[in-house]
Design a protein around this nucleic acid. Sequence first.
DNA 1: CTTGTAGTCCGGATTCCCCT
DNA 2: AGGGGAATCCGGACTACAAG
Length: 274
Amino acid sequence: MMAMSCKDGKGGMDNGKYVRYTPEQVEALERLYHECPKPSSLRRQQLIRECPILSNIEPKQIKVWFQNRRCREKQRKEASRLQAVNRKLTAMNKLLMEENDRLQKQVSQLVYENGYFRQQTQKAGLASKDTSCESVVTSGQHHLTPQHPPRDASPAGLLSIAEETLAEFLSKATGTAVEWVQMPGMKPGPDSIGIIAISHGCPGVAARACGLVGLEPTRVAEILKDRPSWFRDCRAVDVLNVLPTANGGTIELLYMQLYAPTTLAPARDFWLLR
DNA sequence: CTTGTAGTCCGGATTCCCCT
DNA sequence: AGGGGAATCCGGACTACAAG
């Protein structure tokens, strides 16, 4: 179909025919467009003279073609940009949904733990004895489980629990007993919540120990020596409760949130007693 | 110099037509 | 029916030019 000059009223074309430029004409126009997307009036007339295949197209039509061509390119770029944005938002939404799910489960667990500690600290109103223990580590969810019946929640009682679980941890650290205790709503493994009790004598060092029980004993000892690294990637620390001890010391209940190794993995949460 | 008018161009929106 | 392309409509920006 040959191009025809337009004119005959509204959206009209010659002889009432809708015209399409031939593939050759379109190819030539596209080539010229890539050379110069916005030719001047003079340049457009020059193009018609230089390109015989365009000779039967009116200058006004050439002008309109370039105008529409720029418009189409702009629309395509915008559509492409919006598709890219949509892909990113979809991916982000997926991550947020997963994180939301994880946090909701975590909230349920924390509400449960909060109730437990609140109950225990109320019972601990009377005098208590501080036993300033050595490094005490516990994967604390143990003493929340039915296998450890509720006991005295005084500082001495807590330390007693800590010592007991330290022994358990050390047995795990030797490689004789490696297993994670799954928290309700949490997947098993290093990303689960751990509760660790440690004394002021070894500040923070054992905090990551709950994540080490799957390692070789020598590797555990090596990491334990690296004290600065324990708080290096800690993004949140909260002192939730402070209990005085008989010898003037204190026991603090801390909540720590550690950055996960990768940006996409969830952060790890630890509860500390020190 | 300022102002009003006409002409031109452009982008955006819309209409019209053809094709699948 | 819906998509794509050509053409039209409309308003804004810019320029040239004549008149006051």
